[in-house]
Design a binder for these strands. Structure first.
Lengths: 230, 230
DNA sequence: CCAAAAGTGTTGGTTTTACACCCATGG
DNA sequence: CCATGGGTGTAAAACCAACACTTTTGG
């Protein structure tokens, strides 16, 4: 398994990588996927999944490909985050990293990537010290995620097609990290016309069966000031 | 499976450029700086100022350097916008462009850059068809600028240190493209405690001399929901 | 019938919007 | 004394935050 990687010093060559912050909600906690590096530099350290961009590949395609090397998902929300280009961010040479964040609506099967010693979901509140400048990237991604949750309909990317209002509320509570009043939440979310009720109810629960809802649009919607959620 | 190492012969190498959308307000209009290309491809077309990133130069430094090749300003607000990396965006080969936007608080002297046939300020409402994907970049920059004006204290970057409330209001009006009620604007902006009055007044005007104000912090401040300006 | 989560309204405080007149100066 | 932009308050409407009980199901 040990792969000898030649650490060629290429002071003249500039490289582009993509790194991805993959979020999902597992057991009512917001998690991100990290891989443990099998090779130097930072061997043994946890890092974001990522890799090089092929010469004829768009950045987004590269991000999608890297994502699929770790997980089996195909339908996924991907958004470009920021480009980190400090000349000293990678000890091997000049590597500019275009970062993305991805949102998954369920825990995917994890493949074992070839160059990883291990792969795991980490609670965002328990991120260890990461390789490269990846802690910075994660914190940037988290900020962006919270921000988008407030002013867009991005919450849908964490949910299946049909969901209950309580499940939707929980997405907000988990990501914002605070409790929200149920009545106020419902009043607010319904006034936005982002979601519509389906005729279905969730059956086989030991309590009053909740109605199932769905998002009206699968496109990204930007809310204006007075529509923002908390 | 993923062991595909890209040993494929690379017909071209990947390059990184920065492109900058330079905004300023001139004659009560929002303008951006464009250069007319002197060389192929797109010879004769207008384009954003920009250029290649040196191997040991951070992206922001590269953007600053390019900015100074066109203008004489040094103190300038610069912010990374987005990275455009479509493989076909540049006919010469694979060029990934990291874009920035810059805000100037006054019309700078324009140097004549070596590779430009001409350099001009364009009203954002009258942008011609540009080289490469630069129209897309400009429209993205405009969106971001309007957005930031609403939820940060970025307006200060268009103003000198001391300014009148009417001048500040005009920044908002010009960029949002709509009139704002003077009393409501003042009430709002004062309630935010972003600015403080100086003892000075602007003299030598043929009407009641206005008080001069300054921003409390030259750092970027992010406003929360209830503080947003309109 | 018990446990569990679903579902539902009202009120008081705050924020927003719309709107018109007097003030201080230079010429 | 005129022209010009500077400066100021109020009331009605919309919005937000806080708060508790009844309903429906499975077991």
């Amino acid at each position: 398994m040990k792969k000898r990687k030649k650490i060629i010093h290429q002071p003249e060559k500039l490289q582009i990588a993509v790194d991805i912050v993959i979020f999902t909600i597992i057991d009512d906690k917001l998690k991100i996927l990290l891989i443990q590096r099998a090779t130097k530099p930072f061997k043994g350290k946890w890092a974001l999944p990522g890799g090089h961009v092929d010469i004829n590949e768009s950045l987004e395609k590269a991000a999608k490909r890297e994502l699929q090397e770790e997980t089996n998902v195909k339908k996924v929300y991907l958004e470009q985050l920021y480009t980190f280009g400090d000349p000293s961010r990678d000890p091997r040479g000049r590597v500019i990293s275009v970062t993305y964040f991805a949102l998954l609506n369920k825990k995917p099967a994890i493949k074992s990537a070839s160059d990883a010693a291990d792969v795991r979901w980490f609670n965002v509140k328990e991120i260890p010290s990461l390789a490269f400048d990846h802690n910075k990237i994660v914190s940037y991604a988290l900020k962006r995620l919270r921000w988008k949750l407030e002013y867009t309909n991005i919450a849908q990317r964490f949910l299946p097609r049909y969901f209950t209002l309580t499940e939707l509320q929980r997405v907000y509570e988990i990501i914002f990290g605070k409790k929200i009043d149920k009545r106020n939440f419902r009043k607010k979310i319904l006034s936005l016309n982002l979601i519509r009720p389906s005729r279905r109810k969730r059956k086989m629960v030991a309590h009053r069966p909740p109605r199932l809802w769905q998002f009206v649009s699968s496109k990204n919607v930007i809310l204006t000031k007075r529509e923002l959620i908390f």
